[in-house]
Simulated scan of single mutants.
Amino acid sequence: MRILLVEDDRPLGQAVLGYLKSKQFSVDWAENLQQAKGFAATVPYAAVLLDLNLPDGEGLHLLPLLHESAAHPSARPTVIVVTARDQVSDRIRGLDAGADDYLVKPYDPEELLARLRAIERRRGSQASSVLTCDAVTIDLGREVVRNGTVPVVLTPKEWALLRVLASRPGQIFTRERLQEALYQWDATSDSNTLEVFISRLRRKLGSALIETVRGTGYRLTAL
């Protein structure tokens, strides 16, 4: 399950990031509102852990973008507000703004895990988002890819790239944005690494599936 962590407290953010990755979640970490908007505009998240007090604005300002960028209401991420504000009025305001849940700092990591597992179960019971292009079928919900009738095994880095590209078929993604997807797995990833993994995806899925847009980046052939 893909999660967006929006947290400006670096030690806390690093701790939560490490914990969630140890539980096999895929996590993007934004330290301010602008970074969070960049992630939310291009990646379909299942859940968002949203701090309210950010250096460049209030976290609740991210909610309209999360709702607008979802292809369908059922695809909207579940938003858990995670904040030190413990007043009932703050909780009501967050829920009225469109958040789904509220967790007050400091919290037990096991409580957060339980809430995320519940989200995962709910989403798993819904119909998966399945994309097809010629012989290739991409099931983003179950993380299953087939080329014809043959299952295709992808590495975590290959999946990280494909999820971004498949989130908006036909949309051009910059090299920088795709490198960010690799960066979460390897902090030394660079442009050469990106070329390697694009080449691997093409070998597994077909050379025509991923198009190079010169001087800009890549896009998945419109499905």
Results as ranks from 00 to 15, higher is better:
G94E: 08
G57T: 07
L54H: 01
K37V: 10
A118H: 13
I119R: 09
L60S: 12
K204Q: 01
N147W: 05
S129F: 04
T188M: 04
E7W: 00
L5W: 01
L5K: 00
A114P: 08
S74R: 15
E211D: 10
I119K: 01
D9P: 01
N192H: 11
T149S: 12
A135H: 09
C133A: 12
E7N: 00
S167P: 01
R76H: 07
A99S: 12
R123W: 11
V152D: 00
R122Y: 09
I210T: 03
K204P: 01
D28L: 07
G217H: 00
E7A: 00
V152Q: 02
L4H: 04
V43M: 15
L182R: 01
A71N: 15
K23D: 08
P11E: 03
I80A: 09
R10S: 13
K37F: 12
S69T: 15
L209Y: 01
L178H: 03
S125D: 15
T42Y: 11
Y19S: 08
E110F: 12
L12N: 10
C133V: 08
L112Y: 06
L194Y: 00
P44F: 10
K157P: 02
S167W: 02
P156K: 06
V144R: 13
V6Y: 00
P151G: 02
L162V: 06
A99Q: 06
D8E: 03
R91L: 14
P151K: 02
P109S: 10
L66F: 05
S207H: 11
V88R: 15
L5D: 00
S69N: 14
L178V: 03
L17H: 09
L4S: 01
P169C: 04
Q87D: 11
T155W: 01
P156N: 05
L20V: 04
E58I: 09
R168H: 10
K157N: 06
K204L: 03
A46C: 14
A40P: 05
D86Y: 10
A160D: 07
K23M: 14
L154W: 07
S199K: 08
V130A: 10
D28I: 00
L63Y: 02
A15L: 08
S22D: 13
R122S: 12
G94P: 05
E143K: 09
R93V: 12
Q34K: 13
V27T: 07
R142V: 04
R76S: 13
T221S: 14
R117S: 14
L201C: 04
D96I: 08
R85H: 15
F197Y: 12
L220P: 03
L223N: 06
A30C: 09
K105I: 06
T193E: 07
Q24H: 15
E195H: 12
Q126K: 13
A222I: 11
E120D: 11
S128K: 05
A118R: 13
A181F: 03
G141V: 06
D96F: 10
A84T: 10
A181E: 14
R91M: 15
L165D: 10
G215L: 02
G94M: 08
L182V: 02
R175Q: 07
P44S: 15
F173R: 11
T149P: 06
